[in-house]
C-alpha cells in the first residue's frame, strides 16, 4: 500500500467522473444545469455492457453505450427545450427511468438479477507506454490506463481551447451569458443548446462505458452518485475546465483512498462516506466563500467610509 499505487488508482477512478463532468460543464455553459448526468451515465454503462456482450468487441460496446446515452439526452433536450418541462423534475425522472430500465432489462438480456459479469477478454484494454517508464514517479502513475482515461485527461485542455478560442466556444459563452442578446447577435441558440447537450450525451456514454467495461461487469446502481459528484466538481471549479480537472482528480483520490484504506481495516461504511462528504463540501464551499468575501468587502468599505467621514 504505497502512495504510487493509491495515486494510480486515483487517476483510474477519476477518468469516468472527468468525462461526465466535462459533459456537464458544457451543458452548464449554455445555462442548462444538467442534474440527470447520473442517469445518462447509468444508461451508458449498461448499454456498453450489452453491446460488448452481443458484438464480442469492446469498442463496439463503447459505441453502443455512447449511442444509447446520446439518444436519451436528445429526448431530455426535447423535453426541456421544446416541451418546457421543469429541468429538475425531468432530470429526476430520467434518473428514475434509467435505474428502472437497467434493473429490469438485466433480466431478459442476461437472465440474471442484480449484476452481470462479462468474460474477462472483454475488459477495456490498458495501454502500456515504454517511454513513460523512464520518468520515475509520474511515469508510473500515468502508465497502464485505458485509452478512455487518457482521453479524459486530455479533454479539459481541448475544451478549454474550444470554449475560449473558437467560434463555437464564443457562441456557447454568448448563449450562457445572455440568451436574448445571443439571439439578437444572430446566434442560433437552439442549435447551440442541442449540440452542447449532444456532446454532453456522448461524454456521459463514454464515462459510463469506461466505468463498466474497465471492470467488465454491470451491477444495479453502479454509478453510485458519480453523476452528482461530477456536478459538485464543476460547481467547485466554477465551470472552468482546467480547474475541474483538478477537482475531479481530487474525487478520484478520495475514491482510491476508500478502496485502499478499507483493506487496512478501517470501517468500510464510514470510509464510503468520504467521496460524498467531499462532494457536499464542494457544492457548498463556493457559495460560503462568496458570502464571506462579500461580507469582508462590505465591512472594509464601511470602515473606510466612516474614517473618511471623520477625517473631513
Amino acid at each position: 500500500m504505497d502512495i504510487v499505487t493509491i495515486l494510480t488508482v486515483a487517476v483510474r477512478h477519476a477518468g469516468p467522473v472527468l468525462l461526465v463532468a466535462m459533459g456537464g460543464l458544457l451543458a452548464s455553459r449554455v445555462n442548462i444545469f444538467n442534474l440527470a448526468l447520473e442517469g445518462f451515465m447509468l444508461i451508458g454503462a449498461f448499454s456498453s455492457i450489452v453491446g460488448a456482450f452481443y458484438t464480442g468487441n469492446v469498442w463496439l460496446g463503447v459505441l453502443f453505450g455512447v449511442l444509447a446515452s446520446t439518444l436519451m439526452i436528445i429526448i431530455y433536450a426535447v423535453f426541456i427545450i421544446e416541451l418546457e418541462v421543469q429541468p429538475v423534475v425531468c432530470a429526476i425522472s430520467i434518473i428514475t427511468l434509467a435505474s428502472g430500465l437497467t434493473r429490469y432489462l438485466l433480466n431478459p438480456v442476461f437472465g440474471v438479477s442484480g449484476r452481470y459479469v462479462l468474460s474477462s477478454e472483454l475488459a477495456m484494454p490498458v495501454v502500456h507506454m515504454n517511454w513513460l517508464e523512464a520518468i520515475p514517479v509520474a511515469g508510473q502513475i500515468l502508465n497502464n490506463h485505458s485509452l478512455l482515461v487518457y482521453f479524459a485527461l486530455v479533454l479539459p485542455f481541448v475544451l478549454a481551447f474550444v470554449i475560449n478560442k473558437t467560434k463555437y466556444g464564443l457562441d456557447i459563452r454568448a448563449v450562457g451569458m445572455n440568451e436574448e442578446a445571443a439571439v439578437s447577435a444572430g446566434i442560433h441558440v437552439r442549435k447551440v443548446k442541442y449540440s452542447a447537450l449532444m456532446i454532453n450525451g456522448i461524454l456521459c456514454g463514454l464515462g459510463g462505458a469506461e466505468l463498466a467495461l474497465s471492470v467488465y461487469m454491470f451491477n444495479v446502481g453502479m454509478t453510485n452518485g458519480r453523476g452528482y459528484t461530477a456536478l459538485a466538481a464543476i460547481t467547485l471549479a466554477g465551470c472552468n475546465p482546467l480547474l475541474s480537472l483538478i477537482t475531479c482528480l481530487l474525487f478520484g483520490f478520495a475514491e482510491s483512498l476508500v478502496v485502499s484504506l478499507s483493506g487496512v481495516g478501517f470501517s468500510s461504511y464510514l470510509l464510503g462516506m468520504l467521496p460524498y462528504a467531499l462532494a457536499l463540501v464542494a457544492a457548498v464551499a463556493p457559495q460560503v466563500a462568496r458570502r464571506c468575501i462579500h461580507f469582508i468587502k462590505r465591512k472594509k468599505s464601511e470602515t473606510e467610509m466612516i474614517s473618511e467621514y471623520y477625517r473631513n
Partner: peptide, 12 residues
C-alpha cells in the same frame, strides 16, 4: 423489476 421500469415511465 418490471414494476421499477413502469414506475420510471410513469414519472417520466
Amino acid at each position: 423489476e418490471l414494476v421499477d421500469c413502469v414506475k420510471g415511465f410513469v414519472m417520466f
